[in-house]
Design a protein around this nucleic acid. Structure first.
Lengths: 193, 193, 193, 193
DNA sequence: CTATAAGCGAGACGGTACGTCTTGTCTTGCG
DNA sequence: CGCAAGACAAGACGTACCGTCTCGCTTATAG
């Protein structure tokens, strides 16, 4: 049987229960329904155990969010820029609007508007890595010579993924495959040789 | 002397004091620092007076936000699409990042991630009207024949303003004039006659 | 139709409605359930109308109490001290425990423990007069020569009615006819010739 | 150092502070001046701590009242009924009119007129025990043969202490030693051998 | 026979206290 | 030494009444 916390380290059991409880509460009751008390009660864990390991409820959610973004949104190299981008943007849209981790992301992004420190951690911990991954198809194309070597990858990414996030976070408009494909078309029309 | 509320209507004095107090608190202490108690105390108003007229603190902020977006972000017709768009995007960026109403907007947009009902009200009450205004330069250009009549204005807007909101709400990257100009260039490169 | 208040006087209609509403509320919900707002709502009267004529809710109850005590508790002269006292104490017990005005009295007496000013008004306005009436049988007996002329009527009354009030207000024990008769017996045993 | 509350029990420190604060407030500002907020503020305690342990402010006062009555009003056996009763009634009068616990009692007795449940608790928790103590001199006298064995002790007590409570709670007349002595005289005149 | 002034209903106002909820800290004793 | 349990101080929540105020209607005289 798993140890329940002792001098040799923390309880993995408790850690998992906390992360799952936080995830469940977010899904069931939304961000406001996620409280330390609620997590503790649902996880069968003492509040102190949460405070011992996480500074706040957003830290719990950040850890629960974990590597979800990397797992869902790492592009594959098909050898063709258009295919790579279309596939990737489509999966990004699906991730943001149609998955549980996507809901966690939206909640964290929302909270980050109120909490600059969270914004920084969200960017450093997840978004910067994701932008690296988002940029891979462009870098592959540059290596292949399908895109100019002096392309400003950052600005290009903003133009490619920005409208997707905008629809998800601001207008609430569904992000269709037609929409993401059109983004790619616009990009290719301007840059691809 | 201004009346202080009676059967024939509410106190405009109190209304203004509440809206200003909410705005001030948001600017000084952030969204979490905006509390009904705090607004009441700072406005010199009874809590009940707030609850009588606004269901929640976000309603106060929504009303305080008011017509700010329309006032700041109504485009002018210079007769040239490029000029119109460059000016408008630049002012959008400034509004979102450099003004008090912009801070209120960011807080509301953040809260809307936790509150679908607020999201709907924000969209219906402010964003849809703003998108109308954002689209004016495009419609003027269509009338002039500078853009094709069958242009999908909605999608075009998403590609133009989406990256701006994305930088503001997600990455936190400064939205420079170079960046917004480049968005316009990309658009013109693809669509303009 | 009754006038509804004008320059020549207040509305008797409103006055009655307020007094009845206060009485009803006391009977239905107890003293804590009697509020100015509640009286106004039930009486179909504006709060200001109550505040115009009564300083507080206890004043309303005091006025509603009115002459009830005098009406219920004025002794009759049967020409016999024992009969007079037995009848009177018995009616006092019934008044205090079994009537609506008795309930109002208990509430006012209770409130008087928290409010010295009310205590004074209750004594001056009602209790002193009642003690006059309570003492009538004794004075009649003195006139008849059935009691010594130097009897301390006040102390005698305290010994006769005190235990009745004590049971009503403190112990809650039922005040039976046997109990009041015994009080009279004790008094007669000591003083009557 | 005193513990401050944990799973193994409540904070005695907080309990004492609450009871003292309630007592002080009653003495300084009267019953209406005793509020949960006021107690909490003066005791340096959170409101929740009060609500955790006491259902209402009268419960706090009841507990603060505690054993005060037993401590002040336990009669001593002098071997003489007259002496015992005169001493005891005199001390009762002093307790009710001249002490802080007496003021608490009057407030609770007053509130009990509005709250039947409080009346029951006051009687069961304090008054019944006090009547036991009040009756001790009578029982001692019965044992000594100074009073008939079939004396109705309850009725006798009502006649002895009833007028004292009546003066305290109803008429407000000072309860002098002459008055209490006269009560004893009347009782002895009728019953003592 | 009209003007006017007082009483009225309605209800918004600034306050205070209510009883509840959650936060983040602490203390304890078990394993 | 981590843990479950849970008491604690703090403070915001949304509600109920308080007592004050202003408004516009009604109505009985006084001019």
């Amino acid at each position: 049987m798993a140890h329940r916390g002792n001098r040799h380290g923390r309880s993995e059991e408790a850690r998992q229960a906390v992360l799952e409880a936080a995830d469940d509460l977010l899904a069931e009751r939304g961000f406001a329904g996620v409280t330390i008390e609620g997590i503790a009660a649902r996880a069968g864990v003492a509040k102190q155990t949460i405070y011992r390991w996480w500074p706040s409820k957003v830290d719990v959610l950040l850890e629960a969010f974990g590597e979800d973004m990397a797992q869902h949104l790492t592009p594959e190299d098909h050898g063709d820029l258009g295919t790579d981008l279309r596939t990737h943007l489509s999966r990004l849209a699906e991730f943001l609007t149609g998955t549980d981790p996507g809901a966690v992301f939206r909640a964290l992004a929302g909270q980050a508007q109120h909490d600059p420190q969270l914004a920084t951690r969200l960017r450093d911990g997840h978004l910067s890595g994701q932008r690296e991954r988002d940029g891979l198809p462009l870098r592959w194309a540059i290596e292949r010579g399908d895109l100019p070597a002096d392309l400003d990858v950052g600005t290009a990414l903003d133009q490619l993924v920005g409208p997707v996030y905008y629809r998800v976070l601001v207008t609430g408009t569904p992000v269709t495959r037609a929409f993401t494909d059109d983004l790619v078309d616009a990009f290719l029309h301007r840059h691809a040789r």
